[in-house]
Design a protein around this nucleic acid. Structure first.
Lengths: 246, 246
DNA sequence: GTTGTATAATGGTTCGACCTTTAGTAGTGG
DNA sequence: CCACTACTAAAGGTCGAACCATTATACAAC
């Protein structure tokens, strides 16, 4: 019900003031803050304390600090990376396993596909088909190009999230994708069959979105990412078994 | 493809070392770090630089710093709050509107209900029914107790997320709930009818989870949160209209 | 015009001192 | 013997001044 009331820290006060100015729009993205030596006078504090405040703001993703003359603190755009980073930490903290991530992803991709199928314009569809064509290209070149295919796969999913027009989907999708991406590297090589399966999935999903069939698009998208997930979890098991009896 | 290569900052090196020690488990939650004056010698740096590193770690939610003798830096448990905080910032940055949050929430609650209906044990159901009983109690007492009802409502949803056993759902759900909560305050009073509607929803959802009907549970959960969302968006519109022509 | 160099502004680091908070301990009075 | 007070030391918080490292700019040399 109540929050800790410690407010004896000066740097925190500085952080709050600058943060408020940014959120209220008094400081726009791209704006430069005064130099440290000026700000220390403005806030009537020491440079060390002011720098601690800047460290916090930088970590929050609100400012970026550049070196040299003409450098200084510049207000950043929306701090979306921080959401990814904080979850990244949680995953590495082993609070969240691959299985958990994969399950969650399945649900999100399903929702994204359903929403996208209701909102996709002709331009959106055209964009998707360009990506699809690239994917076909890489699959045709064989398993050696698996990395390219995975990259295109990611871009297609990202495009779907974009079509929903909901930044929450974009951020969350990015976050999950970034965090699951780490595992891809460990679980190759992919077979040609698997590549082809995934490509077929993508084609069908786009086709269903074209017709606006939310139900089917959602189900197919879920099946698609479940394939990814099951494969990786399966591989992970093999690993841990191998690790137990080497 | 590549990342910025600036690594000339000493405090960043200190951050990385301590972060790695925590993630690798060499430092367990609850462990105390040495005092600033000791660490400055260990890392062979100045106290100011070391303190900047500690500020970053504190902001990341990895450590907590206490004052006075016997105080110092103590390693925290899983930094879940940071995920909420970073999204909170994004919302306040006006990158994400109530509408976006509500839509995303609808999808998540649907997935949570579906998954929970497959995994709920008898104990889980019992817990839910205890909460349900409390909700009934507050509704019976009338609109004046709307705040209590909303609190129970939140706990029921949180319980559902817990039943899935997937920490991703718990974290994401918490995050969305915390960030949407802010709007509740602005959009009262609730009518008795509305209170009753929501209670009915909750009862039906729990009943469907009891029977393990994922489809229906999901649909009902979505409808439930959509009601919340629509009501708030509607109120928000009234507000902005009122603000335009006062 | 291009290249190199000096300059100054700005963040990054260091050192040393002092203040504030806090837990423990010794002392004091009942 | 107990309870309260006051002192002490440890730890974070702040301050100021100096110096180092990086970089954009202006100016000079070719």
């Amino acid at each position: 019900m109540f929050r800790a009331a410690k407010q004896n820290r000066i740097f925190q006060d500085v952080v709050d003031q600058i943060e408020e100015a940014i959120i209220d729009g008094k400081l726009q993205p791209g704006d430069m803050l005064p130099s440290e030596r000026e700000m220390k006078d403005l806030f009537q504090t020491s440079r060390g304390t002011l720098r601690e405040a800047l460290r916090v703001l930088e970590q929050k993703g609100l400012i970026e600090i550049k070196l040299g003359v003409g450098g200084g603190s510049v207000v950043k755009a929306a701090p979306m990376e921080q959401v990814c980073d904080s979850l990244d930490l949680l995953v590495r903290f082993q609070q969240i396993s691959l299985r958990h991530l994969a399950e969650f992803r399945e649900g999100v991709e399903g929702n994204v596909a359903a929403t996208a199928s209701q909102r996709a314009t002709e331009r959106d569809i055209a964009k998707l088909e360009v990506l699809l064509e690239k994917a076909r290209h890489y699959v045709a070149k064989g398993v050696s190009e698996w990395r390219q295919f995975v990259e295109i796969d990611g871009r297609i999913h990202q495009a779907l999230a974009g079509i929903t027009g909901n930044p929450m989907y974009i951020v969350i999708h990015q976050m999950v994708h970034d965090n699951i991406q780490r595992y891809y590297e460990q679980f190759l090589p992919w077979t040609q069959t698997r590549l082809q399966e995934n490509l077929d999935d993508l084609c069908r999903i786009v086709a269903l979105i074209k017709t606006g069939d939310a139900e089917q698009a959602s189900a197919r998208a879920r099946r698609h990412v479940r394939r990814f997930g099951e494969y990786m979890i399966e591989k992970e098991k093999e690993r841990s078994v191998a690790a137990e009896s080497p």
